[in-house]
């Protein structure tokens, strides 16, 4: 539990950070909240020779509203999401999920950027990003580009980030007023990753589901968008048979690993239960 030697850098601007990462190459890792990277370093599963701490880069902070889009700086902490009036108003599902991430100490330090960019299948925010149709702004030696959350995740810890690139901000289209939402997360205890979790954002019209997106956390090596499951509920009033159908459609794309949270069979089963419960709770909230 003692990390190996490394050099510590603390650039003051985004340009300096990108240049440092480009110059230092594969031996360098950007450091945000550190809640994934630092434990890996303490176990010496990660041994970066250089850490580029992003905490002094002011451009990476803050929550702003541009027209129908919310832009969240990558270094915004989970705690800042939880206390933001803007987020409460426009993206309440982020607060529901952030409150389920670890404990207050972790949330004071852990960032949304680190959570979505690390590619850890256990992280909660990536599935929400997919459900909300978020775009990630990336900055690197070749300039800036945008990648949709749904295109970002390639495998466990493998993402669309190119060497030297960092995530700078996340743009999320504001869902329509009156939308329903829910994040259902089954975990063993505070601080644990999800055994299974489902994120739902939907709208209702005349007692029937008008639009729906369903995301799944920790049920595959990447976060999943359960499109078939979402399609199965559109136009229905979420009767018991439809819910079961949606759960089955979601389970069909799950491929979780067996771990101490339970065998594959259990994790898929409760994944389906989380989908059903999230749908019901989201529908109950929609107006």
């Amino acid at each position: 539990m003692i990390p190996g030697p490394f050099s510590y850098h603390r650039p003051a601007s985004l340009a300096d950070a990108v240049k440092l990462l480009a110059d230092l190459g594969d031996d360098a890792r950007p450091l945000a909240g550190g809640h994934s990277l630092v434990p890996m370093m303490k176990l010496r599963l990660a041994t970066p020779a250089h850490l580029v701490d992003l905490h002094d880069v002011a451009d990476l902070k803050g929550i702003r509203h541009y027209g129908s889009t919310i832009v969240i700086g990558a270094m915004t902490t989970q705690h800042e999401l939880l206390v933001s009036g803007e987020i409460r108003q426009s993206l309440p599902i982020l607060q529901e999920a952030a409150a389920l991430i670890a404990d207050p100490q972790v949330r004071y330090r852990g960032t949304i950027g680190g959570n979505v960019a690390n590619g850890d299948p256990g992280n909660d925010m990536p599935a929400l990003m997919m459900v909300l149709g978020a775009n990630f702004r990336l900055s690197g030696p070749g300039g800036e580009r945008e990648v949709a959350a749904s295109e970002f995740y390639q495998g466990a810890y493998f993402t669309a980030l190119e060497p030297g690139e960092i995530l700078t901000s996340i743009s999320i289209p504001v869902p329509p007023a009156g939308h329903g939402y829910a994040y259902e997360k089954l975990k063993r205890k505070v601080g644990d990753y999800a055994t299974a979790a489902a994120a739902v954002v939907l709208t209702m019209a005349g007692g029937k589901v008008a639009t729906c997106a369903i995301g799944l956390t920790n049920l595959h090596e990447t976060p999943l968008l359960a499109t078939d499951a979402a399609n199965a509920v559109i136009g229905t009033s979420l009767d018991a048979a439809t819910l079961k159908q949606a759960a089955a459609a979601a389970e069909a794309i799950m491929a979780p690993a067996a771990d101490t949270r339970g065998p594959v069979e259990y994790r898929k089963h409760v994944g389906g239960i989380m989908v059903m419960r999230a749908l019901q709770r989201a529908a109950g909230r929609a107006v």
Partner: peptide, 16 residues
């Protein structure tokens, strides 16, 4: 050992 840290070795917090 598959339960070698407090991630997997159940140590309840005040919440649980």
């Amino acid at each position: 050992v598959v339960t070698g840290s407090f991630m997997d070795f159940f140590m309840p917090t005040a919440v649980e």
